[in-house]
Design a protein around this nucleic acid. Sequence first.
RNA 1: GCUCGGUUGGUGUAGUCCGGCCAAUCAUUUCGGCCUUUCGAGCCGAUGACACGGGUUCAAAUCCCGUACCGAGCACCA
Length: 460
Amino acid sequence: MASRQRPDARRHRDVQRPLRRLDAVPVRRHGPRDETAGPRRLRRHPRRHRLPRVRTDEVIRASDRVETYYDHARELVDLGGAYTCSCEAGAFSDMKNSGEACPHREKDVETVREEFEAMVAGEYESGEMVLRVRTDIDHKNPALRDFVAFRMIDTPHPREEAAEYRAWPMLDFQSGIDDHLTGVTHIIRGIDLQDSAKRQRFVYDYFGWEYPEVVHWGKIQIDAYDVKMSTSTIRSLVESGDLDGWDDPRAPTLASVKRRGIRGEAVVDAIVELGTSTSDVDLAMSTVYAKNRELVDDESDRRFLVRDGAAIPVEGGPDAAHPPLHPDHEDRGRRDIPVRDAVLVELEDVPDVGERVWLKGYGCVRYEDPVDGEASFVFTDDDIDAVREEGVPVIHWVPAAESVPVTLRTMDGDVSGHAEPSFRDYAPDDVVQFERVGFARVDSVPEDAAEEHVAYYTHP
RNA sequence: GCUCGGUUGGUGUAGUCCGGCCAAUCAUUUCGGCCUUUCGAGCCGAUGACACGGGUUCAAAUCCCGUACCGAGCACCA
């Protein structure tokens, strides 16, 4: 994943199996945030976030390890690296911002130790006492000055096993300790946590530990969507009915691209290619499409789909056409498309009167408009040189009768059209390439084939 | 306000630490050609970038300073 090799990372090249911990993985948090409610109830990773090649070897819970954090806090206190502080948060912040130490900073270790044990025993209420790491109170970066390691929480932890604890570690302390104890070699985290490493190093220095390699990366934005890639924005559009759901093709979500038939692997490929830049990057959907095309092109059979077609009679030609299911795989067989009396073609494919077009898989026809009658395609029996040498356009078509009504859902809205009769053979989740239109994933197939089928447009 | 990052073609990326082999890599996009009964694929080709201004140097994408713009942190959230 780390395509950018940091100089120090080379040292780890020979490590057999680097242990990586991902901070700020895309775990969505649902429901209102209640700042007073104690450790947030963590949801299981929703299914839609499971991606190929992302494998979790082991899950550890901080709430099972509170005693471990206490032990390290005690050791840190003994090393002179931490002190208990009863400053009101705002007051401390003001002092800190002007580089001033609070009076508690110089307490002796004995007192600190006693007060910390009192924290552990739950003798304080929320807000009354914290344990701070002694960093550098006039460090030029105010973000690093004497940060909080433990604070009191009145609300019991939702897990019964941890419900009795009242003194809880902050993220930087907890994850810093766990990274070392679990042997993490590489930390991959967002740029919002850039200062975490700097804070945690103070703790590591007290303990004499070596800090893991850190790779930071910025936010990823996706082009091609009108809807902002924001959970709250999407949620409100879903709730108001402007989007049909989280998997609406207009929504910039994994659920949406999945429903369109884009493989998770294509998304992973594209994102891995973005690398780990610390600046925000735009993921071009065209890159995702290119990756997906590589995956699906070979196995997607071809069919015709005419969008908003015009019916035009056909005279003088064969009864049916037999184009291959896949141009690169003749062995898969051929389709059988009846012609009957008329075909549907897309409006923009209708030629000028007197001009020829090549109905793909069928043959060349001339568009003729007799003075008193209905304009029609008259079979000309030209051979393929008409296309190769004379520039006759090749277009797709479906029989005017017997074709299958299809709603094609796209990022730009729904399009209705008709697919050739054998489209009935498809089942939900199949991916088809509608020639000259693009790939699509079959979403639903009605009992009665005359009813509307629904397909999701994948990409060109 | 203080602090920390970042800025290479439309998009992403390599190169920046250790200046020269970088008139800048690769992918994608766009355009054109070949092939193909479309699209796609394949093959060939083209367009297109070192944010700006100074400085150091024989030599700067690379080092230094400044500016602009973007992002992030300065919480008893994770």
